[in-house]
């Protein structure tokens, strides 16, 4: 394993009864890069995401985070090690304000209430939600909710941040803002894995892209290669368009 590897996924297989959601998926995420996982609906992206974050236990294969085997770790321990995530369906704590939501994340590594608050405020300034810190979670727009979810994840001070469709359903302006935020997070030294459907964002943001189809990795490469790859085109558009 190279020193630069932040995450190494080796031969992950996940079955649900007879359904094979992931089969022998392997890839490596380097320190400081943005890696996107794309693929058609039902390809197994979210399953893979859940295996890495400890929400599912893979049937076979191993996962290393900064050289440590985390395959059998429970989700909260993986987070404690420095892997934070957001959810496909936005989850915020509904009876808490924006600030309190972020504080809940910040409490992972800080105990003193005043320090927790200060750190949470700092994160909100960073993500641009500071002005809305006293708003209740559910009263936010969908774009702000997604931003809040990212802020909550940042509260846990991750080295690897995993975003599950953080850009789905945003307006073009909101999309630009979210992309800017993701770049800013990377500039702060955080490695990112993005599961995404919004191709515009994937192509612009990613250093590398992993394409999943029917549970298997079909190709991996830089964005420019991916868009020209015949297997990718086939996976997205079907056989009829295959040259």
């Amino acid at each position: 394993m190279s020193d630069a590897a932040c995450l190494e996924v080796q031969g992950i297989t996940k079955r649900f009864g007879g359904l094979i959601a992931n089969e022998d998926v392997s890839f490596t995420v380097n320190q400081g890069e943005i890696l996107s996982i794309i693929g058609p609906n039902g390809a197994g992206k979210s399953t893979l995401f859940n295996c890495i974050t400890g929400f599912y236990r893979p049937n076979a294969g191993r996962i290393f985070f900064r050289g440590k085997d985390i395959t059998q770790y429970s989700a909260h321990k993986i987070c404690k090690l420095g892997v934070a995530r957001t959810f496909q369906v936005v989850q915020v704590i509904s009876d808490m304000t924006v600030l309190e939501n972020v504080m809940t994340g910040t409490y992972l590594r800080t105990y003193n209430r005043r320090d927790v608050r200060e750190k949470a405020e700092e994160i909100l300034r960073f993500t641009g939600l500071y002005e809305k810190r006293d708003t209740l979670g559910p009263d936010l727009t969908i774009a702000d909710k997604k931003r809040l979810e990212v802020s909550m994840a940042l509260g846990t001070q991750p080295t690897l941040l995993m975003l599950d469709e953080a850009m789905a359903g945003l307006t073009p302006v909101e999309l630009r803002e979210m992309m800017a935020l993701i770049r800013k997070i990377r500039e702060n030294g955080v490695t990112l894995i993005i599961v995404e459907h919004v191709m515009e964002a994937v192509m612009e943001l990613s250093d590398r892209v992993v394409v999943i189809n029917s549970g298997r990795k079909i190709v991996e490469g830089v964005p420019a290669e991916i868009v020209r790859n015949p297997e990718v085109i086939q996976a997205y558009l079907g056989d009829r368009y295959h040259a």
Binding site: T53, G54, F55, S74, A75, H76, K77, C79, K80, A84, R85, T86, F87, Q91, V92, I93, S94, D95, T104, G105, L108, M152, A153, G155, T156
Partner: peptide, 12 residues
């Protein structure tokens, strides 16, 4: 709020 959310924030 949700066990999933809690786990995702490192809460046992």
């Amino acid at each position: 709020e949700s066990h999933e959310l809690a786990k995702g924030m490192g809460i046992s």
